[in-house]
């Protein structure tokens, strides 16, 4: 098989091994390409490479093509694929692993706003210990397309008027302690 020859940049690892090294990604070798995941996916028609194909690409070593695509960013974590997969390979977890590698490698697509949204969410959770939804949304729109906020403004206003959109963040007492935990996790070497 030639795919074992495709090395990931900066590592001595083949793409498939890189995916397998993230908890949840390790079962990718057991796929029988039956297509149950794609057939079960509520957003498959939006993916550059739908789930079954994405998994085939991991095994074929098509690293850059897959990691720069919009594919895994359309995973809504509904886990329909996961409960139906006849090989128990948890395709949703594999998509999460691909998202992680895509961000880590700087390959995440600009055609979907999901990678930036996820990073805004993580920043918010790290800064306050809890997610500050309004702040996160503002950051998302500023980093993508500020004008698109106009479309969603009525929804935000509706939530605000129904006391469901606090203007201030809620911060945990142990925020310094939480940051120390997260920094240590980061220092221990990412998601391996």
């Amino acid at each position: 098989m030639t795919q074992t020859m495709v090395k990931s940049p900066g590592t001595e690892m083949a793409f498939i091994d890189e995916v397998c090294s993230i908890p949840g990604g390790e079962a990718v070798r057991s796929c029988i390409q039956c297509g149950m995941c794609t057939g079960s996916c509520p957003t498959a028609n939006k993916w550059d490479y739908p789930p079954r194909k994405a998994i085939a690409m991991v095994r074929a070593g098509l690293r850059n093509e897959l990691l720069s695509s919009n594919s895994m960013w359309f995973c809504v974590s509904c886990y329909s694929c996961t409960v139906r997969c006849p090989r128990d390979i948890k395709p949703a977890d594999i998509m999460h692993a691909l998202e992680i590698i895509s961000i880590r490698s700087g390959l995440s697509t600009k055609r979907s706003r999901t990678p930036i949204m996820y990073q805004c969410f993580v920043d918010s959770a790290r800064n306050y210990g809890r997610v500050y939804e309004l702040g996160m949304m503002i950051k998302l729109f500023m980093r993508t397309n500020p004008f698109s906020a106009l479309k969603l403004a009525p929804v935000g206003l509706g939530l605000f008027l129904h006391k469901r959109m606090p203007l201030k963040p809620s911060r945990i007492k142990g925020i310094a302690e939480l940051k120390a935990i997260l920094d240590k996790a980061r220092a221990l070497g990412g998601a391996k």
Partner: peptide, 15 residues
Amino acid sequence: NCCGSTPYWSVDKLE
């Protein structure tokens, strides 16, 4: 604190 939710899960699994 925040559970991390799907977004953190998709950015760095160890953190």
